[in-house]
């Protein structure tokens, strides 16, 4: 196996991992702070892909339209998510996980039908954005530019998120709300508002992941829950509430996926789930997690 091919696959894996990270980090935040099983997270990811598609094909091709779409789609998705949070999720925060799951399932079905109704069952694709459709050559290795972009964006987001959570007052209040909501409330933190903000942020990240991923794949039905399942498992493997853990776990999954496609193309998904089972058995609270929940 030529090194150059391995290197290109590695890049593809890191790129996929970055997208998975963006998706999973949102879920990690929501699960860690709001402590709710947000099973519709993946639906928002797919919804953002569809919205991105519409924006890309309907908007006049400005030079910067790709970048605009990249922000607009997640904003739409975050807005919808906030509505859902205020109207519905708030009522189940105190209820059992089972209830939250059923509620989320209901929303998945509803969103799924809405997407099917608006966009139809045929998968939608877009081309690469201008300026990123080519690739670099470095010592015989082909490095597609878009992959590099995705990895850069993903890493930057990871660092930014980590910094925001550790260094800003919003981050402090968020961590307090996650660790001990009652104490936080007593200290004057508006826990409800924080929860809504985190829900919006997490959903924004899911949407962001979708928009970024669209040129690499396609918007289609049925991806919604696959994405949610994958994201949950990544969150648990990485350790709920740990941005670093989610980042590492997502990259691992992305790389395994990518090399799996290279070496055992038909069985990649089996390998991924097998790997997840092994990790969950060996480190039940995740690579970086602790038994806090």
């Amino acid at each position: 196996m030529r090194f150059s091919i391995l290197a290109t696959q590695l890049l593809a894996g890191l790129s996929r991992g970055s997208v998975l990270f963006l998706l999973s980090s949102g879920l990690s935040l929501i699960f860690g702070v709001n402590k709710v099983i947000n099973f519709m997270h993946g639906s928002l990811y797919v919804l953002a892909m569809y919205i991105s598609f519409t924006l890309a094909t309907k908007m006049i091709t400005l030079a910067s339209s790709f970048w605009l779409n990249l922000i607009l789609a997640p904003i739409c998705v975050a807005a919808i998510a906030t509505l859902i949070e205020v109207a519905l999720f708030r009522r189940v925060y105190a209820k059992e996980h089972l209830m939250q799951l059923v509620l989320a399932f209901g929303l998945v079905y509803i969103l799924g039908d809405i997407m099917k109704f608006i966009w139809g069952p045929i998968p939608k694709t877009v081309g690469m954005p201008e300026g990123f459709s080519g690739s670099f050559r470095m010592g015989g290795i082909i490095l597609p530019s878009y992959h590099l972009l995705v990895i850069t964006v993903g890493t930057a987001t990871a660092v930014g998120l980590w910094a925001a959570i550790q260094r800003t007052s919003f981050g402090r209040r968020t961590r307090a709300s996650a660790a001990d909501p009652n104490m936080a409330r007593a200290l004057g933190v508006n826990v409800s508002a924080i929860k809504s903000a985190v829900f919006a942020l997490g959903s924004f990240l899911a949407g962001f992941a979708g928009g970024l991923n669209l040129p690499l794949s396609s918007a289609s039905l049925g991806v919604d829950v696959e994405a949610t399942v994958l994201a949950f498992i990544i969150v648990i493997i990485g350790g709920a509430g740990s941005i670093a853990g989610t980042f590492v776990a997502a990259l691992i999954v992305g790389i395994v996926d990518s090399f799996g496609i290279l070496f055992v193309p038909r069985f990649t998904i089996v390998v991924i789930y097998f790997l997840m089972v092994i990790i969950l058995l060996v480190r039940p609270y995740g690579i970086f997690g602790r038994a806090t929940q």
């Binding site: 209820k95 509620l103 209901g106 998945v108 799924g112 039908d113």
Partner: peptide
């Protein structure tokens, strides 16, 4: 498009 009806049912169920 019947899935959404089921979805609404689930939400009503939980609430």
């Amino acid at each position: 498009y019947w899935a959404w009806i089921l979805g609404v049912l689930f939400i009503l169920l939980v609430l």
